[in-house]
């Protein structure tokens, strides 16, 4: 596909109750290689739903999502294969509590990518080293702080060597003093050129590392711009109102 587009969302809709409730009402956008797309908006605007539609955790009721040119909303497509290339980080971490950190990180590479245990562990240890948690490799998730859990969740997804990372409000469930350590890992990732879609309330993050900001409201994409332009001169009334409250 042209312009290095990794994900192309076309008129993505998510309707409930025969169209009475429109969680998503026709969202179209392209996500290009190396971009950091930050999705913001008031709660209930559909931003999380949109993100979850990108790897089909939520099934759209209309429109299509092309991932590397393949329409993954087509039911003949094996979504599991494509999800291996789309890492996801959740608000509530969702680490596997019955496994050690290392087991959390090596499960998918060993089972799905058919890597050897040694190879998967080597990769996992290298990633743990990078986020400063190598000494916790054999700990269980319940022994970690929220910030540590989220950093593990990020590197767990990275173990699959994804082409794009989806972040669903990764810092919303954290104590304020732990937000920084998670954002730092995400900024590192962005600087390395990882393609990222981030749903967040961290305006500072959007401004600093975002390459594009999407503002959603009422299931619609209201405004889309570079962070500089978006925060300096919002054009839409709804955007202005939102920014006046959060900044």
């Amino acid at each position: 596909m042209s312009d290095n587009v990794i994900i192309r969302a076309q008129e993505v809709k998510k309707h409930f109750k025969g169209g009475q409730i429109k969680a998503l009402d026709g969202i179209s956008t392209d996500i290009r290689k190396g971009e950091v797309v930050v999705v913001i908006g008031p709660s209930g605007s559909g931003k999380s739903t949109f993100l979850r539609c990108l790897n089909l955790l939520e099934t759209p009721t209309g429109g299509s999502i092309l991932f590397n040119g393949v329409d993954i909303t087509d039911k003949k497509v094996n979504i599991n294969i494509h999800r291996q290339k789309m890492g996801m980080v959740f608000q509530h971490f969702n680490l596997f509590p019955h496994m050690t950190i290392l087991q959390n990180m090596t499960l998918a590479p060993v089972q799905l990518l058919k890597k050897s245990k040694a190879e998967a562990e080597e990769k996992a240890m290298a990633l743990l080293e990078r986020v400063g948690l190598a000494d916790r490799a054999n700990a269980y998730p319940s022994q970690l702080s929220g910030g540590q859990k989220q950093r593990i969740a990020i590197v767990r997804a990275l173990c699959m060597e994804p082409e794009v990372m989806l972040f669903d409000e990764p810092t919303s469930a954290l104590d304020p003093e732990m937000v920084g350590e998670v954002l730092e890992v995400m900024k590192d990732l962005a600087r390395e050129g990882m393609t990222m879609v981030v749903v967040t309330h961290e305006m500072g993050f959007a401004r600093e590392v975002g390459s594009r900001v999407l503002f959603m409201d009422g299931g619609k994409l209201v405004e889309e711009n570079t962070p500089e332009a978006f925060f300096a001169n919002p054009t839409n009334e709804r955007t202005k109102l939102f920014l006046s409250k959060v900044l």
């Binding site: 599991n80 294969i81 969702n94 596997f96 499960l107 089972q111 997804a157």
Partner: peptide
């Protein structure tokens, strides 16, 4: 837990 597993490709 199910979502995390599915998102990894299981």
């Amino acid at each position: 837990q199910m979502e995390a597993g599915r998102s990894l490709g299981f």
